[in-house]
């Protein structure tokens, strides 16, 4: 299966390991993976700050990079959602639409498209799962605590197959961690308070790692964890699914 990688800007620059893990994982699962070299960003930081109007050229660049792609896979729920909801073009709308209907967040791509019989990953640690809002409520990667619906979770379905993993779900299963894009700097006090409260539940339950499908939320928690010299580390779901010796 041919897959084109969309690696969000901050992953490209700050968390290349997550992108590498995504690439390797998809290859392990039998995909032929390509990475368009002129990609930058989906434009979400502009749009969520109220400047969607400035993202035209960014959108065009995105379309330049991905209009020929079949499946587009991205290791971030938030960026995937942004593309799905807001990618548009004055001159190439049909291409934008094609991209929007072909872009997947990594874990949903594995559960819904690849559907591998089993995963070979092993990760013998206690891992807390952070449900990030855009992937959950926007992409519906998992059932939502506010809605009366059958319980499911695409990322947990995958993590449950990892050998040796001891998964932990926080009490407030899908309360926001407080990242929120530029919210994390413009509303620093609220953002950090929300992050600390999220972390407390993981720390008191002695997890080794906090994982999730959005590096941005993990980056925010990692910043707080490191500042407070916590032993808890953060790790992206791709890195866990790509771990283990028998890969």
């Amino acid at each position: 299966m041919e897959v084109t990688l969309f690696i969000p800007c901050y992953i490209d620059q700050l968390y290349p390991n997550v992108a590498v893990a995504t690439l390797e994982l998809l290859q392990k699962l039998g995909c032929s993976v390509s990475y368009p070299l002129q990609q930058t960003c989906c434009g979400q930081p502009l749009a969520n700050s109220g400047f969607y109007s400035l993202s035209n050229k960014c959108n065009e660049n995105f379309i330049n990079n991905f209009s020929d792609a079949g499946y587009i896979v991205c290791p971030s729920g938030s960026c995937t959602l942004h593309v799905k909801e807001h990618l548009q073009s004055k001159t190439r709308q049909s291409k934008a639409e094609k991209i929007k209907s072909h872009i997947y967040e990594l874990s949903e791509f594995i559960t819904d498209v690849l559907k591998p019989k089993n995963l070979t990953a092993s990760f013998p640690y206690k891992v807390g799962f952070l449900t990030s809002c855009h992937g959950q409520r926007g992409l519906h990667l998992s059932s939502m605590s506010e809605i009366n619906e059958p319980s499911f979770s695409k990322p947990l379905q995958l993590l449950n197959e990892v050998a040796g993993i001891d998964l932990f779900m926080p009490q407030r299963v899908d309360d926001c961690c407080g990242f929120g894009g530029t919210f994390c700097v413009y509303e620093e006090a609220a953002s950090v308070k929300m992050g600390k409260d999220r972390i407390r539940d993981f720390e008191t339950n002695n997890v080794d790692y906090i994982t999730g499908y959005d590096v941005s939320c993990l980056m925010h928690l990692e910043g707080i964890l490191k500042r407070n010299k916590s032993r808890v580390k953060t790790i992206h779901i791709a890195e866990i699914l790509n771990s283990g010796t028998n890969g």
Binding site: L14, P16, N17, E188, G195, G223, I224, R227
Partner: peptide, 20 residues
């Protein structure tokens, strides 16, 4: 405002693109 209560991420030498 990020740094007041949070550490910055550790900067890798190479971007993913460079690695790729």
């Amino acid at each position: 405002p990020w740094y007041r209560q949070r550490e910055m991420p550790e900067a890798p030498k190479k971007s993913f693109r460079q690695w790729y």
